[in-house]
Design a protein around this nucleic acid. Structure first.
Length: 271
DNA sequence: CTCAGTGTTCAGTG
DNA sequence: TCACTGAACACTGA
């Protein structure tokens, strides 16, 4: 489920576990697909090197190596991390495993194999190469305004464009637009100054709230739209029970916008 | 058995 | 070149 809040949560987990460790070995189940450089090159870049720091740009997780290079992890749709010691504790779908000199291991878990691992010369070089916009937590209102005010596309797919701002994925885009009371198909160039301001505030609100809750959706405020998606598997609900606006108690609409499933409230977010 | 999907990239169109 | 759309990618779980 890795959007910005999940990746930030993984980063903090990494800081408490694998940071400071020295890599002694590496295993990759499907190296040609999941590594962006060949296995031997990656192993050589890691072996004997220490993990000395972490960064995050949007959904991209970067680890400073003692060599000066940067290890880059992207979690795709289903990536996760697990730090553990014994072989028998290897999680299911551990596609790549880092082995450390202290006997512990770090698994890159990724059931659907959209995740990628590679090496970059520096954080700046990587951000430039991937053309990533400012991190969604850092983007300023003038920056956001400048990059979307002339665009005619619906606002939602622009929020998903990592070149404009980095870190927003499908559910956060819906949540942000709901909190800002903006219709997802509204052309970006028709947003008023007030709407842009609310949009910018909603981005900060949703991301900060999600990070505070360590991206555990079930614990998010009741005022959040995310509960409509039915990802809380501790309760049994039908779509009709769930797909209700938290403000009005009226049915939400589910549509495809920019090719992605989109939830919104036609009353809160009129066109 | 079929199908949707939390992300990204690329081909194709205008 | 740019803006935009839609399909493809791999796999699991409903």
């Amino acid at each position: 489920m890795p959007e910005l809040p999940e990746v930030e949560t993984y980063r903090r987990y990494f800081e408490e576990t694998a940071l400071g460790q020295t890599v002694v070995d590496l295993k990759a189940e499907d190296p040609r697909r999941q590594l962006t450089l060949d296995y031997d090159t990656l192993l050589n870049a890691l072996k004997g090197k220490q993990f000395v720091g972490t960064h995050r740009i949007g959904k991209h997780f970067l680890v400073n190596l003692s060599s000066g290079n940067v290890l880059v992890l992207h979690f795709g749709m289903t990536g996760d991390l697990a730090y553990y010691r014994d072989e028998e504790d290897t999680p299911r779908f551990a596609r790549v495993v880092f082995y450390f000199s202290n006997g512990f291991r770090l698994a890159f878990i990724d059931s659907r194999k959209f995740g990628r691992i590679g090496i970059a010369a520096s954080i700046e070089e990587y951000q430039k190469k991937k053309a990533l916009g400012p991190d969604a937590l850092d983007i300023t209102l003038p920056q956001l305004q400048a990059s979307i005010e002339k665009r005619k596309a619906p606002i939602k797919p622009l929020l998903l464009d990592q070149k404009i701002l980095a870190g927003i994925g499908n559910w956060i885009a819906d949540e942000v637009l709901f909190q800002a009371k903006i219709n997802p198909v509204k052309p970006a160039n028709t947003l008023s100054d007030s709407e842009l301001k609310h949009l910018h505030q909603a981005i900060q609100l949703v991301l900060q709230t999600a990070i505070e809750h360590e991206a555990i959706y079930q614990t998010f405020p009741k005022s959040f739209l995310i509960h409509a998606r039915g990802w809380d598997d501790t309760v049994e609900t039908t779509a009709a029970e769930r797909q209700i606006c938290p403000r009005h108690g009226t049915p939400l609409e589910v549509a495809k916008v920019g090719g992605r499933t989109t939830y919104f409230c036609p009353i809160c977010q009129p066109l």
